[in-house]
Design a binder for these strands. Structure first.
Length: 890
RNA sequence: GGGGGCGUGGCGGAAUGGCAGACGCAAGGGAUUUAAAAUCCCUUGACCGACAGGUCGUGCGGGUUCGAGUCCCGCCGCCCCCACCA
């Protein structure tokens, strides 16, 4: 038999050309039901990484599956092309950002085509093109008219390395910049904001709609980020000056226990009181010191509570008590009112502060044991009896009494119910060049003047000098900055800040339905046809950034009457991280695998083969650090000789454990890479990359190929009917085939379980390999077609090649998903386990339709069972026909 | 401190409350080969046993059930997110 090697390189190119030529993924009007599948579009960094490969492969499998299921599928791709890397490259190399961006797009588009991902490229756009970003400006004006965008002075996050402010959401763990990882500092600045916080309640309420179709983790993160808390606002008064001082509290039940008041260092009242203070300088000094302390989570956790007494007092409205007013480093200006009523007996933070500064404790909630605050070693925060609290003294359950207390406060005019959110407004301005210019003009006479709609777009100028450390280059572009005031015509100046690039990604999913429209942002008819997105796929790192902004933006667009839905993504799927073992040297930090040397405990070298085996075991986790040591090996750094440790971690440049998708496709082809990414684990879990793993996927493809090729001479021509009177082997083969159809379909429909779908195909493949010689030609064809179709969304080039070898002219993706024949899948004989007291003791081979009574009879008659039940009392027999028999004996 | 997720062989992982370990990787043995690669066949949870077979086994402790990896309660461990949020 002539062996034909699977030539992936020729085959993949051939089918990519055909799909493009035949417009397989071009979408227009159709009678079929619509399905909009979207993957998070990439920033054009220039190269795809493995995270992209997993993301886009998942999306592509769904697109092809839905095509086979008869849908009219929209699968677009574009570029999130504004942002810092292009601008930084310009500073470094002198290449203009647009040029850098275009080059990167060309490279990545070629990589995407090579991976075989099917997109409607006629819809492609890049957000840095004026045809796109002009609509950012148009939306800005619409938001402005509606009062959804404001300019305000506020404490903001400043990244010194990126030379720009950042939104709250873009400061990640430990107070680092989301882009560059540098420490972020707080500054007071006058900036543009979208009023995200106005939508806190709507964003939260929307979760009801999304629950079940978005990952729980994402909803939980958003909920946490929105941070709703219900409580009361109570107005205290500064005794000496009469200034009103409202506070927010979730614990109005402890109002009678307030023994001091804390102001955030940035609180406006601090400056005012300092001016009236006897020792202004000392107070301001202390406050300044507090403000310059770090704000990262780590800093905060390690930092001691610190404060300074202002010399002033406040009056507690519920009982007239006069308590000292402090400035404290734990009070945050950005939450509540910036002032905290402090109850040391019933709040751990206040407890610590009061201990340090010797402030009194007043017990107002009594624990069950009746103990006193003197005997506590920490604040009492659990449920208890209200004591020492005016009209509420004696209430048995403090938490249950809260609504009543709030009601009373309201009646007395002392306070009212208040819902507070942690969510802050979305800081929009960026002091950088490569973004959408904010369409605003500043006029000395007219103030802030929005650019009139008819003067849009405000085009980002290209005559720009990029100089490192000189701030936003737009400031130096006289032709850009100098402009006439649209209202009075006098000389005025343009806003030089640009928009956060997350504005671009907040509505790109809508633009894809009408990407070339130059008269409107979109045609409402096309939007109605496609949106909201049926299935969105991307990384979970966007849970509180992009995904939150896009939801907000959609809600505002809805309220502006521009769309008639208010959630952008009906279903969301988040893929897991792609990980690989990484090596860390004590001295040089992360090092790449080739820089690691394995030696024996005595320092002697290993030969090449031993080394290879050892590293393979480390890579596939069959050897951990302990095992390595106990086997008498250790790893050393080839650069400095220091010991080396290893761990499984996300593939990244900085950890030096990257896998280059191009190199993998050179070696194994796109289909093998795709198959491997999906075959091992469920796609929402961590994926581990190993050489052995990709090699296994390569073997699977070749096994399949040989099976199909070796069968070609035997398969009947398409359409040959399957005879009615098949022998047992052929009936078995048909049964397995149709059981596989059902299982594969369920695996895909039941939530992206491609690992089990692939396993089912493998099972069928293994079965067919054993029985191919006995297979009837028509049955053989049926089975082969099921395998090829089922696997084709995952390895599409392979699928189409096999499909054409099976004699079809058209692409497999224009055919239809295999049809499940329940009759053929039915078992005619079953092996039913018989348990005694829950343990399997025997098995019965019976016709599939044997009823319960018959099963019970057969089970009790079974020799093995009788031996075990002899002399005992059968108490109960549970029979589940077709499943099992359980006999309870004593 | 709060929230989310997870815990099954040497590894990734399968199991509508009903035969635990599908499928794959790694490992061992064999066939083929001058040799290697590739391919094909067999074995592979642990323990006892020559075999037949038996015993134990899904992080730990309880519970519900004829029957629990799966459901309930209480622990332990790991991962992720948030965190001086009043």
């Amino acid at each position: 038999m002539a062996e034909e090697e699977y030539n992936f390189s020729l085959i993949e190119k051939k089918w990519q050309k055909r799909w493009e030529k035949e417009g397989l993924f071009k979408t227009g009007k159709s009678d079929r039901p619509n399905y909009y599948a979207l993957n998070m579009y990439p920033y054009p960094s220039g190269v795809l990484h493995m995270g992209h490969v997993l993301n886009y492969t998942l999306g592509d499998v769904m697109v092809r599956y839905k095509l086979l299921r008869g849908y009219n599928v929209l699968s677009p791709m574009g570029w999130d092309s504004f942002g810092l890397p292009a601008e930084n490259a310009a500073i470094r190399t002198g290449v203009a950002p647009h040029e850098f961006t275009e080059n990167n797009i060309d490279r990545m588009r070629a990589q995407m085509k090579r991976a075989g991902w099917g997109y409607d490229w006629s819809r492609e756009f890049a957000t840095s093109h004026v045809d796109y970003y002009r609509w950012n400006q148009w939306f800005f004006l619409k938001f402005y008219e509606k009062g959804m965008v404001v300019k305000k002075n506020a404490p903001v996050n400043w990244c010194d390395s990126c030379q720009t402010v950042l939104a709250n959401e873009q400061v990640i763990r430990e107070g680092e910049c989301e882009r560059c990882g540098s420490k972020v500092v707080q500054k007071d600045m006058n900036q543009w904001f979208y009023k995200l916080s106005d939508y806190a309640q709507r964003l939260l309420a929307g979760h009801d709609k999304l629950r079940g179709s978005w990952p729980d983790a994402v909803l939980a993160m958003q909920e946490e980020w929105i941070g709703k808390s219900v409580g009361a606002e109570v107005v205290f008064t500064v005794k000496e000056t009469g200034d009103r001082l409202p506070v927010f509290t979730t614990r109005p039940d402890t109002l009678w226990g307030v023994t001091f008041m804390s102001l955030a260092p940035e609180h406006p009242l601090v400056k005012k009181l300092a001016a009236e203070s006897e020792d202004e300088a000392a107070l301001l000094d202390a406050v300044t010191r507090m403000r310059t302390m770090g704000t990262s989570a780590k800093d905060l956790a390690e930092r001691e509570k610190e404060g300074v007494f202002t010399g002033f007092h406040v009056v507690n409205p519920v009982n007239g008590a006069e308590v000292p007013l402090w400035v404290a480093n734990f009070a945050l200006m950005t939450y509540g009112t910036g002032a905290v009523m402090s109850v040391p007996a019933h709040d751990q933070r206040d407890w610590e502060f009061a201990k340090k500064y010797d402030i009194p404790f007043v017990k107002v909630i009594e624990p069950e044991d009746g103990s006193d605050v003197k005997n506590w070693d920490r604040a009492f925060v659990a449920q208890g009896k209200i004591v020492n609290s005016g009209p509420f003294t004696g209430k048995p359950d403090n938490f249950a009494a809260i609504p009543e207390i709030v009601e009373w406060l309201n009646g007395q005019g002392l306070g009212e119910k208040r819902v507070n959110y942690r969510l802050r407004d979305w800081l929009l301005s960026r002091q950088r060049y490569w973004g959408t210019p904010i369409p605003i003009i500043y006029c000395d006479d007219c103030g802030i003047v929005p650019v009139p709609e008819k003067s849009l777009p405000v085009i980002l100028p290209t005559d720009i000098d990029f100089i490192h450390g000189q701030g936003n280059p737009l400031l130096r572009s006289k032709t850009f900055v100098n402009v006439k005031c649209p209202t009075c015509g006098k000389p005025a100046r343009r806003e030089t800040d640009t928009m956060d690039t997350f504005v671009d990604s907040s509505w790109y999913q809508i633009r894809f339905v009408d990407p070339k429209n130059d008269r409107a942002c979109w045609d409402p008819e096309k939007v109605r046809q496609w949106l909201p997105v049926n299935q969105y796929i991307g990384g979970i790192e966007h849970a509180t950034m992009h995904l939150m902004y896009a939801r907000f933006f959609t809600m505002v667009l809805h309220d502006l009457g521009l769309v008639d839905f208010d959630e952008p993504f009906t279903r969301l799927f988040c893929q897991g991280m792609v990980c690989k073992v990484a090596f860390r040297c004590n001295d040089c930090k992360w090092i790449s695998a080739p820089q690691v040397k394995a030696v024996r405990a005595d320092g002697s070298d290993l030969d090449e083969e031993e080394t290879e085996i050892l590293f393979k075991r480390i890579e596939n986790q069959s050897l951990d650090e302990e095992g390595l040591e106990s086997e008498g090996y250790r790893l050393v750094c080839m650069v400095c000789g220091e010991p080396v440790h290893f761990e499984m971690t996300k593939i990244s440049k900085s950890k030096l454990n990257i896998v280059d998708p191009d190199a993998m496709m050179d070696r194994y082809g796109a289909d093998t890479v795709r198959l491997y990414m999906l075959s091992d684990s469920p796609p929402d879990r961590m994926q581990i990359w190993t050489e052995d793993g990709i090699n296994g996927a390569w073997r699977t493809i070749n096994r399949l190929w040989r099976l199909v090729m070796d069968s070609l001479s035997k398969v009947a021509s398409a359409g040959t009917p399957i005879p009615a009177d098949l022998d047992k082997t052929n009936r078995d083969l048909r049964r397995k085939t149709h059981q596989a159809v059902k299982k594969v379909t369920d695996s895909i429909e039941g939530g992206y379980q491609f690992n089990t779908a692939i396993a089912r195909c493998n099972e069928l493949l293994n079965f067919l390999r054993q029985h191919r010689d006995a297979a009837h030609p028509a049955v053989l064809r049926e089975t082969l077609e099921v395998i090829v179709k089922s696997i084709s969304p995952i390895i599409p080039h392979f699928g189409d090649e096999c499909w054409s070898r099976l004699g079809y002219e058209e692409s497999v993706f224009t055919s239809s998903w295999p049809e499940y024949d329940a009759e053929a899948a039915k078992e005619d004989e079953l092996v039913v386990p018989v348990q005694v007291n829950g343990k399997v003791r025997s098995r019965l081979s019976v016709p599939a339709d044997t009823d319960a009574a018959e099963l019970e009879r057969l089970a009790l008659e079974d020799a093995k069972i009788r031996a075990l039940t002899e002399g005992k009392t059968v108490q109960r027999v549970v029979v589940v026909p077709g499943r099992m028999v359980n006999i309870a004996v004593k």
